[in-house]
Design a protein around this nucleic acid. Structure first.
Length: 149
DNA sequence: GCCAACGTTGGC
DNA sequence: GCCAACGTTGGC
């Protein structure tokens, strides 16, 4: 079963917010590569929840996919910052998934620590300039990251 | 189809 | 706030 990593700005949605909510609709992804990864997600698969664009970027916990990809409602909502005027209910190019809270790490695993792991050299997250917000994580990478908790 | 200009991401 | 990296847009 595949594993994933998804980035969220904690100002928008932190792992603590997800813990409080229990579950959420993961919408607003507006990058085709990331969207395509979301479309291959299946319910039950787990993901690392990454805090980005914040004082302490790093992996904050784990969540689980509870609903596979469906048309992203925020693309059709003119009040949403993710509104896409070119999208319609007949033709919506964007996808969302639903995720549920699984675990908050006692200590966040900082990006710098992830970058120091030889087992994670292939992970796009640690590549300079990488902006991909949704990415697959191999079973080996998953285990290597869990070992850092 | 090329590529320069521009906008966004995201670490630092 | 800076800026490198990358994606998108649009003229040609």
């Amino acid at each position: 079963m595949p594993y994933w990593l998804m980035k969220s700005e904690p100002d928008e949605l932190s792992i603590h917010d997800l813990q409080r909510l229990g579950q959420t609709c993961w919408d607003g992804v507006r990058n085709y590569q990331a969207r395509n990864f979301m479309r291959s997600m299946q319910a039950g698969e787990q993901l690392f929840f990454y805090h980005s664009s914040c004082p302490e970027p790093g992996i904050a916990g784990i969540a689980r996919i509870i609903r596979a990809a469906y048309p992203d409602p925020s693309a059709l909502d003119s009040a949403s910052p993710y509104f896409d005027a070119k999208a319609s209910s007949e033709k919506n190019p964007w996808s969302a998934v639903d995720v549920a809270f699984v675990e908050t790490f006692k200590q966040l695993i900082p990006l710098a620590e992830l970058k120091a792991q030889s087992a994670l050299l292939e992970l796009p997250l640690v590549h300079k300039g990488s902006r991909l917000s949704v990415m697959p994580v191999s079973a080996e990478e998953w285990a290597a990251i869990l070992a850092l908790r």
